[in-house]
């Protein structure tokens, strides 16, 4: 999963897509995941980091990850 290259993200959780002009605000969990994605870390590795650091089980994270992917697609933020 790759974010489009020109997507700007800030630490406060703001996302700006300069090719569509859309802005988004991310909750801290989403902001952290986006930061990892931008660094090129693999999905599996990100999930591992989240599972180690946060109080969540793998099945819940899987479901939320899929939902998050839909949100990113919906927001036109992913490379096809």
């Amino acid at each position: 999963m790759n974010l489009k290259k020109n997507i700007a993200t800030s630490e406060a959780g703001f996302i700006f897509n300069p090719s569509t002009g859309d802005s988004f605000s991310a909750n801290p969990m989403a902001a952290e995941i986006l930061m990892h994605i931008k660094q090129g870390i693999s999905i599996e590795a990100i999930k591992k980091i989240v599972l180690e650091k946060y109080d969540v089980d793998a099945s819940q994270l899987d479901r939320d990850w899929d939902d998050f992917t839909i949100q990113l697609k919906e927001g036109n933020l992913l490379e096809n």
């Binding site: 800030s10 406060a12 959780g13 703001f14 700006f16 802005s23 605000s25």
Partner: peptide
């Protein structure tokens, strides 16, 4: 600038 818009809508 976009940063002002983000600031008011985000914070």
């Amino acid at each position: 600038d976009i940063s002002e818009f983000q600031q008011i809508s985000g914070l």
